[in-house]
Simulated assay, not measured.
Amino acid sequence: MAKVLVLYYSSYGHIEAMASAIAEGARSAGATVDIKRVPETAPAEVAQAAHFKLDQAAPIANVQDLANYDAIILGSPTRFGRVSSQMAAFLDQAGGLWAKGVLNGKVGAAFTSTASQHGGQETTLFSLITNLLHFGMVIVGLPYSHQGMMSMDEIVGGAPYGATTIAAGDGSRQPSEIDLAGARHQGELVAKTAAKLFS
């Protein structure tokens, strides 16, 4: 049975919701799944003034936790087309794991959220995937077997590189059912891939 970590950062709950869907998909494929989040690095008064969602249920991860899983799925909102500083700060602490090759051959994947359709989803996914490749991980994206991302009937997230959602500039749009289905599908594929590699 594959052990999967869904590790995320979420300011306003969009990535938190996607993380839950990713985990649901991985569990549907028989994996044991933990959902954890990286620490908030913004000062408390700044986070509160910006109305960050600070009461999230997922426990705070420790960098050493990464060694305990067969697969790690990273989720971060975009920040000007790249990974959030909170996620970057967490991953920057993983040099010891990298030096020892602890994550070599494990499965990695990424998901994200942007304010607009053209807000940097794919570059953010690539910035996450770049970290995973430097760790020596095997990458699983979101193939077009998730047909929902081909829809022209509504605004949808999704890319071949990972599940995505679109939050709107004011954060009012929550992940749609198509976005959540993409997240579940990616989680399922990651779990199945890890099971094949580590069975």
Rank of each mutant, 00 (worst) to 15 (best):
M1K: 14
K3N: 06
L7G: 04
Y9E: 06
G13V: 02
G13L: 01
I15P: 01
A23E: 02
A23Y: 12
R27I: 12
A29W: 01
A31I: 07
A31G: 05
R37C: 08
P43N: 08
A44Q: 11
A47F: 15
A49T: 02
A49V: 06
K53I: 05
Q56E: 02
A58N: 00
P59D: 02
I60D: 02
I60L: 13
I60C: 08
Q64A: 15
N68F: 15
Y69R: 10
I72H: 04
I73E: 00
S84M: 07
S85P: 06
L91M: 12
G96P: 12
W98H: 12
A99N: 14
K106Y: 04
A109Y: 00
T114S: 09
T114E: 01
Q117D: 11
H118I: 13
G120W: 00
Q121E: 03
L125T: 06
L132V: 12
L133T: 15
F135S: 09
M137Y: 03
M137W: 02
M137C: 09
V138P: 10
L142D: 00
M152R: 15
M152Y: 15
P160G: 06
P160I: 03
T164I: 06
T164A: 08
T165A: 09
I166H: 07
A168Q: 15
D170Y: 09
G171H: 10
P175Y: 14
I178H: 11
H185M: 07
E188H: 09
A191V: 04
A194K: 02
A195K: 10
K196V: 14
S199D: 11
